[in-house]
Design a protein around this nucleic acid. Structure first.
Lengths: 326, 326
DNA sequence: TTGTAAGCGTTATCAG
DNA sequence: CTGATAACGCTTACAA
């Protein structure tokens, strides 16, 4: 490995001069500076990150922690984050799984954006206590070193259920996410609030897992106890797609006997027939916002928690019962 | 920051003893070892990655370089990689964009898996020359420190074109990837080989970009010059989906006037109607294989280049003209 | 079994 | 403007 020491030797100067030259410090003559740069290039010098990180106590790298790499969900979000970070001289790495959680406390990254329910809140708070900067997208955590950029789950879930009700549905199933998912809890809460305002609605809750398999399982349950047309709100699109696939194999048609709406508007939704209704929001903006907040946090600026707004995407997957009744 | 020095002070031992204890060396008494571990836990000690990396000259982290984070393409591939790496005590980070390329030469990672045509081959060779270990999935590079795990593009493209021909198609459009894409070149080469064996086939090449927009642009061209039923082979699914969307807005129907086949079998394909034909292969296995090869390379074992095999996925998007003719 | 000390490649604080 | 030199936190001979 060629180090600044080698350059110094070859240039006949000291290592500190080399360091200054390499970092574009005005403390070296243009002449020696240029000579050193030339020699560095000639020797194919590349700085050693570990040494620099050790000394400077920063890596200029931000980590994004995701539950998994799959699905059409994360692409745009991470892209939004990356664009903001790169513009500010930071690099981004995407990590997943418990093993990788160590990167934050071990200081391999200068901060983290968390959208990963397998990452313990307790751990996150502990890291924040030690001075690490965090932006969390999937829970509520109150700490000066943690900023929240949350989805407006309440609005989204309300929009979804109200849409079903408006279309004349009385019997509504809801397929939930995992118990420990904050998003799932918030959405469920909003669902209950809306339903309470409509006494005529029959609400049935089916526990899900935010995965395709959860939607498939729910579909089976639905089919088993089917008696009359009903509506289903899957608390995320992944499960809605699972249900879509499962129902395709059954005698029931989405948008006819069974109305369906999801949440997230992942890319796959564009290709379903009938078009599945869902709740949309800009994933890219979400990621970008998270990055901005994190950088402010790192810069020591004070930051308010932010919110990402949602809209309803209608689709033929929801049958308008009013037409039938009129 | 609490360092081993702090632990040493509190335990009344030297830093080396602490280091040995922390690393489970048999050189320390069980008693002092336990005491040190206890103190470490009490102080919330976390090793500093930069210092360890600097000293050990390895990070136990592997980087996966992708062109972008989007689409249903990478999820399973990265998942396969991750599982293999984690099992062997390595962590994985996913990177994208020129900026992040520095991670390899700066030794922030112990090796890289490259599926990113924006990563210069010249640079890769240069890094390999400096001793960095690489597995490349999207090009052909001959170097002792580089291993190839390639898709069987030739078989895939041949399967696709032969399928179209078998179904009675005579006029075949091919939408290519970017000029510098190795996969695109290989697939095109195979296309030409097959077509040469069938003199009755009329082949029209449309330059594409492997993105949705490329497929959309190709669709417009197709519509503009449409005269009779024809078939299209998009060299990847992303473009096939672009064409699918564009044609949905036109008077032409996929599987009727226009037959369509893609390449990759990304998840979105499962939701198209009619089901788009494509070329399938196990992305997870591909990623896992790449990880295994890289670890062998790092361990200094000799490795042969590997190949990932492909299969044809038929779909209603390809019209059987033989029926019509018989 | 434990301690001493050198060094990994940088940066940064002093003197010159 | 340039050069010694002391860190940064850790690992690992080698000594004791």
């Amino acid at each position: 490995m060629v180090s600044i020491k080698d350059i110094a030797k070859k240039a006949g100067v000291s290592i500190s001069t080399v360091s200054y030259a390499l970092n574009g410090s005005p403390k070296v003559t243009d002449e020696t500076g240029a000579r050193i740069l030339a020699i560095a290039k000639e020797l194919n010098y590349v700085p050693n990150a570990a040494a620099r990180n050790l000394k400077k106590r920063e890596t200029k790298i931000i980590g994004v922690f995701l539950t998994d790499f799959s699905g059409g969900f994360y692409g745009n979000l991470v892209q939004g984050t990356k664009e903001v970070l790169n513009k500010k001289g930071y690099d981004l790495v995407v990590c997943s799984g418990r093993q990788s959680h160590r990167m934050l406390p071990e200081r391999m990254i200068d901060g983290a954006i968390v959208l990963d329910w397998t990452f313990d809140s307790e751990k996150l708070l502990q890291y924040a206590d030690r001075g690490h900067k965090l932006v969390v997208l999937d829970r509520e955590l109150n700490h000066p070193n943690i900023n929240l950029v949350q989805l407006d789950n309440k609005a989204g879930a309300s929009l979804a259920v109200e849409y079903l009700i408006e279309q004349g549905h009385k019997k509504i199933y809801v397929v939930t996410g995992p118990d420990n998912s904050f998003d799932s809890k918030q959405r469920m809460h909003a669902v209950h609030q809306v339903v309470e305002r409509h006494s005529e609605i029959e609400l049935i809750v089916i526990p899900g897992d935010f995965n395709k398999s959860g939607g498939e399982a729910a579909a089976e349950l639905l089919i088993a106890e089917y008696t009359a047309p009903c509506a289903v709100f899957c608390l995320n699109d992944e499960m809605a797609l699972g249900m879509y696939t499962a129902l395709a194999k059954s005698d029931y048609r989405i948008g006819e006997q069974i109305s369906l709406i999801g949440f997230d508007n992942i890319e796959m939704m564009d290709y379903t027939t009938p078009r599945l209704a869902t709740i949309d929001y800009s994933k890219k903006k979400w990621g970008a916002l998270a990055a901005e907040q994190l950088l402010k946090l790192i810069a020591g600026e004070s930051v308010e928690n932010e919110r990402v707004y949602v809209t309803l995407v209608k689709g033929e997957s929801v049958w308008d019962r009013n037409k039938e009744l009129s």
